[in-house]
Each structure stands twice: as C-alpha cells, then as structure tokens.
Write a protein that binds this DNA or RNA. Structure first.
Lengths: 132, 132
DNA sequence: TAAGATTGATAAGTCAATCTTA
DNA sequence: TAAGATTGACTTATCAATCTTA
C-alpha cells in the first residue's frame, strides 16, 4: 500500500505540475488512446479506471472544457454518448506520457534488474488477467 | 495502475461495508499499531500514509469521534500531539485485518505460486527500501 | 421495466493562511 | 524565525435519485 500510494501520489503531482492533468485524467486519456478510433462509450472507461458513473461524467466534463475530449452522440443507441480524444488531447497526452514514463522509470525500471522486471511484468499480468 | 486501483477500491469497499472504516483509516490504524506503544506524533503517519498534514488532522478527528484513537499532549514538545490507539481501536483493527487479509489473499496469495509470491515480495522490498 | 448517463447533496482530500510553541 | 498542527475555501469523488431512450 505504501509503495503504490507513493507512485500514484508522485504521478499525480508530476503530471499536475508539468501538464495540469491529474493521474486519473491521464488514465482516462490513455484508455481513450488505446481504444479503436480513440473513442469509447461513457460507461466503458469507468470500469478500467475504477471510477463511478457520475465520477466519469464529471471527469469527462473537465476534459471537454479543456478541449482534450469531445462528446458525440452514439448513432446506435440514443441513450449513450461517446467520448473522443481530440487532436489537442492527443498532443497533451503525448507530452504527459513522457513525464509519466520518467516517474515510473524512477520507481521501477531504474531500480530493478531486467530479470526482476520480467518477473514483475509476468506477475502483474497474471493477477490482472485472472480477474477480468 | 489498473491493478492497484482495483485492489484499493476493493479494500475500501470491503472495509467500509464490514467495519465502517476506509482503507486510509485502516492504514493509519495499522501504522499506529506497528508503532512503539501504539502511539505516534501527528506528523509521522502522514509520511507513510501519503496524506497531507491537514488530511491527517481530519482523518484523526474522525477516528477520535469513533473512539478508535485518542489525542494526547506531547510532554516533550508543546506544539505537538500524539495519536494513541485505544482498546476499542485495537479491536476494530483486529476485525478489519481479517477482512483485509481476505481481500489481499483473493488478489495475490490465491493467484500466485509460492515462487511468484517470494519474487514479488523481494521486488517490493527492493523498490520500497531504496526510496526511504 | 431496465440501462446509460447526469444531477444534487454530501464526504473527504488539498493548498494557503493562521495559530501556538521552540 | 521556524516547526507542528489546524482551519477556511475549494476540488473532486461518491451515493441516491432522476431523466431519457431501449
């Protein structure tokens, strides 16, 4: 708990200081980036990011005000919306990724051997995939 | 980030549902439990728990209202207070630990081999200790 | 009626400013 | 003056209730 709290806090502070993006906003942007067409239904990233539906609504509102995301109607379901990463959002994300990669490198990559990194990756994958 | 978020969310919900304690409150209680005499200066657990000074003040206020912690004057420094785990706090913590252990077991212990658990422990220890 | 998403009320955290003692 | 701790203003999350469409 200490280790992960520290990494999340450092990521949050680093991203806020350099790019004005919280680590949760970063996580949603990354999730959009990895989605087909950089686009997801509102309810989908909530699962991955561990945010309640209302929490996601408000986070996307902020990203929309900051012109990083747009909300579009879902043509196949009138109840639903899609969040789409804008060009500006993509640029901000690219910059933020550099900062975030540096922080992760400082905590893990620089401190562990290649062997340990492989072990850690395998363990994370196993725990994560088992649960999905 | 996904894995960590999920474990913290599950711990938080599990502890709140069964014991009315958030995972951060649990973390502070554990920190007090591990301290000599179950007692720490206000500023000390903030470091470990990744909480701002004001955040810790408010969290300890809640624990005090719930009779799990008491605030005592520090005899050696008039500016400072000590948070002490009460008997009731110790009991609640003991119960909560059972719940928390179950959650951690569900995520890690049950899913990984003994070999993997040893590797993970070694990696965590290495990353944590390097940073202190 | 149920599902996707949002809104209002509330909880809990942060930063900046403040109070008290060293 | 600095350090330990707290308070006020604000941000961001949650839950429960609500609105709209399936």
């Amino acid at each position: 708990m200490s280790l992960y709290s520290r990494i999340m806090r450092d990521s949050d502070r680093g991203l806020l200081a350099s790019h004005g993006i919280s680590v949760r906003e970063f996580d949603v942007l990354i999730t959009l980036f990895n989605a087909p067409d950089h686009c997801l239904r509102m309810s989908e990233p909530a699962q991955r990011v561990m945010l309640s539906p209302s929490g996601l609504t408000r986070l996307v509102e902020r990203l929309e005000r900051a012109h990083m995301v747009e909300r579009q109607n879902d043509t196949t379901d009138g109840r639903s919306f899609r969040a789409v990463l804008t060009d500006q959002g993509l640029q901000r994300l690219d910059q933020a990724r550099t900062t975030h990669n540096g922080i992760i490198r400082g905590h893990f990559t620089d401190r562990l051997s290649e062997e340990e990194l492989r072990e850690l990756a395998a363990i994370w994958r196993k725990v994560l995939l088992d649960e999905c």
